[in-house]
Design a protein around this nucleic acid. Sequence first.
DNA 1: ATTGTTGATATACTAAAGGATAGTGCTATA
DNA 2: TATAGCACTATCCTTTAGTATATCAACAAT
Lengths: 120, 120
Amino acid sequence: MVELSEFEKVKSCSGQFVLAINDTLNVISGKWKLPIIGSLLYGKKRFRELERDIPKITPRMLSKELKDLESSGILKRTVFDTIPVTVEYELTQSGRSLNQVLDPMIKWGMQLRKNVLGDR
Amino acid sequence: MVELSEFEKVKSCSGQFVLAINDTLNVISGKWKLPIIGSLLYGKKRFRELERDIPKITPRMLSKELKDLESSGILKRTVFDTIPVTVEYELTQSGRSLNQVLDPMIKWGMQLRKNVLGDR
DNA sequence: ATTGTTGATATACTAAAGGATAGTGCTATA
DNA sequence: TATAGCACTATCCTTTAGTATATCAACAAT
Protein backbone atom coordinates (compact mmCIF):
# COMPACT_ATOMS: atom_id res chain seq x y z
CA MET A 1 0.00 0.00 0.00
CA VAL A 2 0.98 3.60 -0.52
CA GLU A 3 1.37 5.34 2.84
CA LEU A 4 -0.01 8.80 3.49
CA SER A 5 3.40 10.29 4.33
CA GLU A 6 4.87 8.97 1.10
CA PHE A 7 1.98 10.40 -0.88
CA GLU A 8 2.40 13.82 0.70
CA LYS A 9 6.09 13.78 -0.12
CA VAL A 10 5.52 12.99 -3.79
CA LYS A 11 2.66 15.45 -4.08
CA SER A 12 4.68 18.31 -2.70
CA CYS A 13 7.45 17.83 -5.25
CA SER A 14 6.45 19.02 -8.69
CA GLY A 15 8.78 16.61 -10.50
CA GLN A 16 7.70 13.50 -8.61
CA PHE A 17 4.10 14.62 -8.89
CA VAL A 18 4.30 14.69 -12.67
CA LEU A 19 6.08 11.32 -12.82
CA ALA A 20 3.49 9.48 -10.74
CA ILE A 21 0.61 10.97 -12.72
CA ASN A 22 2.29 10.12 -16.00
CA ASP A 23 2.68 6.51 -14.96
CA THR A 24 -1.08 6.41 -14.53
CA LEU A 25 -1.73 8.40 -17.67
CA ASN A 26 0.40 6.10 -19.80
CA VAL A 27 -1.71 3.13 -18.78
CA ILE A 28 -5.02 4.65 -19.85
CA SER A 29 -4.14 6.92 -22.73
CA GLY A 30 -4.38 5.93 -26.34
CA LYS A 31 -7.50 5.80 -28.39
CA TRP A 32 -8.54 2.24 -27.48
CA LYS A 33 -7.38 1.55 -23.90
CA LEU A 34 -10.49 2.88 -22.17
CA PRO A 35 -12.93 1.07 -24.43
CA ILE A 36 -11.01 -2.15 -23.76
CA ILE A 37 -10.92 -1.61 -20.00
CA GLY A 38 -14.58 -0.59 -20.07
CA SER A 39 -15.51 -3.78 -21.86
CA LEU A 40 -13.51 -5.95 -19.46
CA LEU A 41 -15.12 -4.33 -16.42
CA TYR A 42 -18.14 -6.47 -17.29
CA GLY A 43 -16.08 -9.68 -17.07
CA LYS A 44 -13.54 -11.69 -19.01
CA LYS A 45 -13.64 -11.60 -22.79
CA ARG A 46 -12.05 -13.37 -25.73
CA PHE A 47 -10.21 -11.59 -28.57
CA ARG A 48 -13.08 -11.72 -31.04
CA GLU A 49 -15.58 -10.73 -28.39
CA LEU A 50 -13.57 -7.58 -27.70
CA GLU A 51 -13.31 -6.94 -31.43
CA ARG A 52 -17.11 -7.11 -31.74
CA ASP A 53 -17.65 -5.12 -28.57
CA ILE A 54 -15.51 -2.21 -29.70
CA PRO A 55 -16.73 -0.72 -32.97
CA LYS A 56 -14.09 0.14 -35.59
CA ILE A 57 -11.10 -1.23 -33.73
CA THR A 58 -8.70 -3.14 -36.01
CA PRO A 59 -7.10 -6.44 -34.91
CA ARG A 60 -3.72 -4.73 -35.15
CA MET A 61 -4.67 -2.07 -32.59
CA LEU A 62 -6.56 -4.48 -30.38
CA SER A 63 -3.56 -6.79 -30.28
CA LYS A 64 -1.15 -3.95 -29.57
CA GLU A 65 -3.23 -2.36 -26.82
CA LEU A 66 -3.85 -5.72 -25.15
CA LYS A 67 -0.10 -6.28 -25.05
CA ASP A 68 0.45 -2.84 -23.55
CA LEU A 69 -2.21 -3.40 -20.91
CA GLU A 70 -0.82 -6.83 -20.09
CA SER A 71 2.68 -5.46 -19.65
CA SER A 72 1.39 -2.78 -17.27
CA GLY A 73 -0.22 -5.53 -15.23
CA ILE A 74 -3.75 -4.28 -15.91
CA LEU A 75 -4.98 -7.49 -17.49
CA LYS A 76 -4.12 -11.16 -17.63
CA ARG A 77 -4.02 -13.22 -20.82
CA THR A 78 -4.86 -16.91 -20.57
CA VAL A 79 -4.47 -19.36 -23.44
CA PHE A 80 -6.59 -22.52 -23.46
CA ASP A 81 -5.39 -25.51 -25.42
CA THR A 82 -8.58 -25.96 -27.42
CA ILE A 83 -9.05 -26.21 -31.17
CA PRO A 84 -8.91 -23.56 -32.41
CA VAL A 85 -7.15 -21.88 -29.47
CA THR A 86 -9.16 -19.91 -26.97
CA VAL A 87 -7.60 -16.81 -25.43
CA GLU A 88 -9.19 -15.03 -22.52
CA TYR A 89 -8.47 -11.55 -21.26
CA GLU A 90 -9.47 -10.37 -17.82
CA LEU A 91 -8.65 -7.46 -15.55
CA THR A 92 -6.23 -8.08 -12.71
CA GLN A 93 -6.76 -6.71 -9.22
CA SER A 94 -4.63 -3.77 -10.31
CA GLY A 95 -6.87 -3.27 -13.35
CA ARG A 96 -10.04 -3.33 -11.29
CA SER A 97 -8.48 -0.87 -8.86
CA LEU A 98 -8.39 1.66 -11.70
CA ASN A 99 -11.89 2.57 -10.54
CA GLN A 100 -10.19 4.67 -7.91
CA VAL A 101 -8.93 6.94 -10.65
CA LEU A 102 -11.66 6.52 -13.26
CA ASP A 103 -14.54 7.45 -10.97
CA PRO A 104 -13.17 10.91 -10.13
CA MET A 105 -12.41 11.39 -13.83
CA ILE A 106 -16.01 10.64 -14.74
CA LYS A 107 -17.28 13.10 -12.14
CA TRP A 108 -14.84 15.80 -13.14
CA GLY A 109 -15.51 15.25 -16.84
CA MET A 110 -19.26 15.59 -16.29
CA GLN A 111 -18.73 18.79 -14.37
CA LEU A 112 -16.43 20.16 -17.10
CA ARG A 113 -19.07 19.52 -19.71
CA LYS A 114 -21.51 21.60 -17.67
CA ASN A 115 -18.98 24.39 -17.18
CA VAL A 116 -17.41 24.90 -20.56
CA LEU A 117 -18.39 22.40 -23.20
CA GLY A 118 -22.05 23.08 -22.46
CA ASP A 119 -21.97 26.61 -23.77
CA ARG A 120 -20.94 25.75 -27.30
CA MET B 1 -22.75 20.00 -9.18
CA VAL B 2 -22.89 16.48 -10.55
CA GLU B 3 -25.57 14.49 -8.75
CA LEU B 4 -25.02 10.94 -7.58
CA SER B 5 -27.82 9.52 -9.70
CA GLU B 6 -26.47 11.16 -12.82
CA PHE B 7 -23.01 9.80 -12.11
CA GLU B 8 -24.34 6.28 -11.66
CA LYS B 9 -26.19 6.53 -14.96
CA VAL B 10 -23.11 7.61 -16.89
CA LYS B 11 -20.91 5.08 -15.17
CA SER B 12 -23.17 2.17 -16.00
CA CYS B 13 -23.13 2.99 -19.71
CA SER B 14 -19.86 2.07 -21.34
CA GLY B 15 -20.15 4.70 -24.09
CA GLN B 16 -20.96 7.60 -21.76
CA PHE B 17 -18.33 6.38 -19.35
CA VAL B 18 -15.62 6.64 -22.01
CA LEU B 19 -16.83 10.06 -23.15
CA ALA B 20 -16.74 11.61 -19.69
CA ILE B 21 -13.29 10.19 -18.97
CA ASN B 22 -11.99 11.38 -22.33
CA ASP B 23 -13.18 14.91 -21.61
CA THR B 24 -10.99 14.84 -18.52
CA LEU B 25 -8.13 13.10 -20.29
CA ASN B 26 -8.06 15.67 -23.09
CA VAL B 27 -7.54 18.44 -20.57
CA ILE B 28 -4.49 16.90 -18.94
CA SER B 29 -2.83 14.91 -21.68
CA GLY B 30 -0.03 16.19 -23.83
CA LYS B 31 3.57 16.39 -22.84
CA TRP B 32 3.46 19.80 -21.15
CA LYS B 33 0.00 20.23 -19.60
CA LEU B 34 0.83 18.64 -16.26
CA PRO B 35 4.09 20.55 -15.77
CA ILE B 36 2.18 23.77 -16.50
CA ILE B 37 -0.65 22.92 -14.12
CA GLY B 38 1.88 21.79 -11.53
CA SER B 39 3.71 25.07 -11.78
CA LEU B 40 0.52 27.12 -11.49
CA LEU B 41 -0.60 25.20 -8.39
CA TYR B 42 1.99 27.31 -6.56
CA GLY B 43 0.35 30.55 -7.69
CA LYS B 44 -0.01 32.80 -10.70
CA LYS B 45 2.87 33.04 -13.15
CA ARG B 46 3.93 35.07 -16.16
CA PHE B 47 4.92 33.60 -19.52
CA ARG B 48 8.66 33.81 -19.01
CA GLU B 49 8.37 32.54 -15.46
CA LEU B 50 6.64 29.42 -16.74
CA GLU B 51 9.27 29.07 -19.45
CA ARG B 52 12.03 29.11 -16.81
CA ASP B 53 10.07 26.87 -14.47
CA ILE B 54 9.61 24.14 -17.06
CA PRO B 55 12.92 22.88 -18.44
CA LYS B 56 13.14 22.33 -22.21
CA ILE B 57 9.71 23.66 -23.10
CA THR B 58 9.76 25.85 -26.22
CA PRO B 59 7.76 29.09 -26.43
CA ARG B 60 5.79 27.49 -29.26
CA MET B 61 4.58 24.63 -27.08
CA LEU B 62 4.08 26.79 -24.00
CA SER B 63 1.94 29.19 -25.98
CA LYS B 64 -0.09 26.38 -27.55
CA GLU B 65 -0.70 24.51 -24.31
CA LEU B 66 -1.66 27.69 -22.46
CA LYS B 67 -4.26 28.38 -25.15
CA ASP B 68 -5.62 24.85 -24.86
CA LEU B 69 -5.83 25.09 -21.08
CA GLU B 70 -7.49 28.47 -21.29
CA SER B 71 -10.10 27.22 -23.71
CA SER B 72 -10.93 24.31 -21.40
CA GLY B 73 -11.47 26.81 -18.61
CA ILE B 74 -8.56 25.49 -16.54
CA LEU B 75 -6.70 28.77 -16.41
CA LYS B 76 -7.31 32.45 -16.85
CA ARG B 77 -5.08 34.76 -18.89
CA THR B 78 -4.88 38.37 -17.78
CA VAL B 79 -3.16 41.08 -19.78
CA PHE B 80 -1.91 44.18 -17.95
CA ASP B 81 -1.48 47.35 -19.90
CA THR B 82 2.10 47.97 -18.89
CA ILE B 83 5.09 48.62 -21.11
CA PRO B 84 6.05 46.10 -22.22
CA VAL B 85 2.85 44.12 -21.63
CA THR B 86 2.58 41.86 -18.63
CA VAL B 87 0.57 38.65 -18.99
CA GLU B 88 -0.44 36.56 -16.01
CA TYR B 89 -1.70 33.01 -16.00
CA GLU B 90 -3.57 31.51 -13.06
CA LEU B 91 -5.69 28.45 -12.40
CA THR B 92 -9.44 28.92 -12.27
CA GLN B 93 -11.64 27.26 -9.66
CA SER B 94 -12.13 24.49 -12.22
CA GLY B 95 -8.37 24.17 -12.60
CA ARG B 96 -7.78 23.94 -8.88
CA SER B 97 -10.54 21.32 -8.63
CA LEU B 98 -8.39 19.07 -10.79
CA ASN B 99 -6.87 17.92 -7.49
CA GLN B 100 -9.88 15.66 -7.20
CA VAL B 101 -8.63 13.68 -10.14
CA LEU B 102 -4.87 14.21 -9.81
CA ASP B 103 -4.61 12.96 -6.22
CA PRO B 104 -6.02 9.51 -7.01
CA MET B 105 -3.76 9.39 -10.07
CA ILE B 106 -0.70 10.07 -7.92
CA LYS B 107 -1.69 7.35 -5.47
CA TRP B 108 -2.48 4.83 -8.18
CA GLY B 109 0.70 5.65 -10.10
CA MET B 110 2.81 5.15 -6.97
CA GLN B 111 1.15 1.81 -6.36
CA LEU B 112 1.70 0.79 -9.99
CA ARG B 113 5.39 1.54 -9.71
CA LYS B 114 5.59 -0.79 -6.72
CA ASN B 115 3.64 -3.53 -8.52
CA VAL B 116 5.12 -3.65 -11.98
CA LEU B 117 7.60 -0.93 -12.78
CA GLY B 118 9.57 -1.79 -9.66
CA ASP B 119 10.68 -5.14 -10.94
CA ARG B 120 12.55 -3.90 -13.98
C1' DA C 1 -12.39 -28.81 -52.09
C1' DT C 2 -14.11 -24.57 -50.30
C1' DT C 3 -15.48 -21.75 -46.70
C1' DG C 4 -15.37 -20.09 -41.97
C1' DT C 5 -13.53 -19.60 -37.33
C1' DT C 6 -9.81 -18.74 -33.98
C1' DG C 7 -6.07 -15.14 -32.62
C1' DA C 8 -3.36 -12.86 -34.35
C1' DT C 9 1.07 -10.60 -37.62
C1' DA C 10 3.14 -7.85 -41.79
C1' DT C 11 3.55 -4.04 -44.67
C1' DA C 12 2.45 0.32 -46.10
C1' DC C 13 0.38 4.38 -45.38
C1' DT C 14 -1.79 8.98 -43.24
C1' DA C 15 -2.48 12.05 -39.41
C1' DA C 16 -1.34 14.16 -35.20
C1' DA C 17 1.99 15.65 -31.81
C1' DG C 18 6.03 17.77 -30.83
C1' DG C 19 10.92 19.88 -31.74
C1' DA C 20 14.33 23.31 -33.88
C1' DT C 21 15.21 27.61 -35.21
C1' DA C 22 14.40 32.17 -36.50
C1' DG C 23 11.94 36.34 -36.20
C1' DT C 24 8.24 39.97 -34.64
C1' DG C 25 7.14 44.65 -32.19
C1' DC C 26 7.75 46.88 -28.28
C1' DT C 27 10.90 49.39 -24.82
C1' DA C 28 14.32 49.98 -21.08
C1' DT C 29 19.08 49.98 -20.04
C1' DA C 30 24.29 50.34 -20.99
C1' DT D 1 23.82 52.56 -31.12
C1' DA D 2 23.85 47.91 -29.38
C1' DT D 3 21.94 44.64 -26.28
C1' DA D 4 18.54 42.57 -23.65
C1' DG D 5 13.87 41.42 -21.95
C1' DC D 6 8.89 40.66 -22.79
C1' DA D 7 5.26 37.65 -24.98
C1' DC D 8 4.77 35.58 -28.47
C1' DT D 9 4.30 33.73 -33.93
C1' DA D 10 5.97 31.40 -38.32
C1' DT D 11 8.06 27.88 -40.87
C1' DC D 12 9.89 23.63 -41.43
C1' DC D 13 11.05 19.08 -39.98
C1' DT D 14 10.92 14.63 -37.24
C1' DT D 15 8.75 11.37 -34.38
C1' DT D 16 4.82 8.88 -32.70
C1' DA D 17 0.04 7.27 -33.06
C1' DG D 18 -3.28 5.26 -35.61
C1' DT D 19 -5.48 3.28 -40.17
C1' DA D 20 -6.05 0.11 -44.21
C1' DT D 21 -5.51 -4.05 -46.11
C1' DA D 22 -3.72 -8.46 -46.71
C1' DT D 23 -2.12 -12.62 -44.79
C1' DC D 24 -0.92 -16.63 -41.51
C1' DA D 25 -1.65 -21.52 -39.41
C1' DA D 26 -4.62 -24.60 -37.36
C1' DC D 27 -8.64 -27.00 -37.85
C1' DA D 28 -14.05 -27.80 -38.37
C1' DA D 29 -18.17 -27.87 -40.97
C1' DT D 30 -20.49 -27.97 -45.58
